[in-house]
Amino acid sequence: MSAAKRPKLEVAMEPVLPEDLTEDVPLIEAYTGIILDAKSISRMVVDLNSTIPISELAHLKRVRAKEILLFPTTFTTPDKVIEVLKRKGFNVEWISDQINVVQVAEVPPKTKKQYDVVNKLWPCNFHSNKYLEKLCTNSLFNVSELEDHKRFMRMCIDVSKHGIKAGAIVVDPKTRSVVAVGFDKTSENPNKHAVMVAIDNVARTQDGGAWEPIEDGDGASLAGIPGNILDDLNANYPGNSFGASCYKGKDEIESPDDGPYLCTNYYVYVTHEPCIMCAMALIHSRAKRVFYGTSVPEGALGTACKIHTVKDLNHHYEAFRGLLKEECERLNGS
């Protein structure tokens, strides 16, 4: 690999977003009337809002220049519009006989990009969510945070080499400490994907775990990282912190932020896109963010599906793809 190519691998991490943030806002058609006397606009809007309120389109402005939004075209046919207005008690003398059809946003836009599109069609209210904007424009992390993410993914790659293919690590972002690691042991047990192993290793730091015998001792904080891997990581990443913060029993936990509890508030780094089983395991475990390197055909965080965006689930995490992508891709061949 030439030195000139190197910076290219360093960028390319992007959020994997739910469709309602990335797709255009769906549109519907609505009737508009032409306002005859501009002076009557404010009275007209009040009158229209009381006679024909359209709560489902409350995100739209009622007036654009000399045009006023009446109601969706699903209400009636164009020739009956005036009749409907009259029947509802609206003073039709304020508008001309001419009825137009316009395209409007069916639902409120969530992002600035979506807003800019639909606002051109018909003026629209929009409340920008700063966090969402950063997420959607892929500007959530500063340079030093990106360096952290890359370092954790490098550890993941190192951990992966203990197994067949994939490697995973779980990090407590509050302390920037590695809580647990996992590598693929599917040759031993079909359930033992790297992520599943890492989740079980997190459980070990909480006096639990199912796959490895639980040893007595005061090392619970480091129980998520096998000794030989811990030695390697310590040697290769001096200054990085390892181990979970002190585990509290259920009775000692006072607030939901008190923990640790499962993978709550933890970040998970994994060299390969998790499959459906692993993606859902991370939902059950209440992970906060998942970062992966390379996409795979059966991947469930963007490729084959997006488990983390299924609306009906009770927990959602954010997913990011492409972190040290090319380095992770190279693991496939080994």
């Binding site: 989740i199 459980a203 775990g209």
Partner: peptide, 12 residues
């Protein structure tokens, strides 16, 4: 018991 949210009957 295992403090592991993936220990469902089927996985076991």
């Amino acid at each position: 018991r295992t403090r592991n949210a993936t220990r469902h009957a089927e996985i076991i």
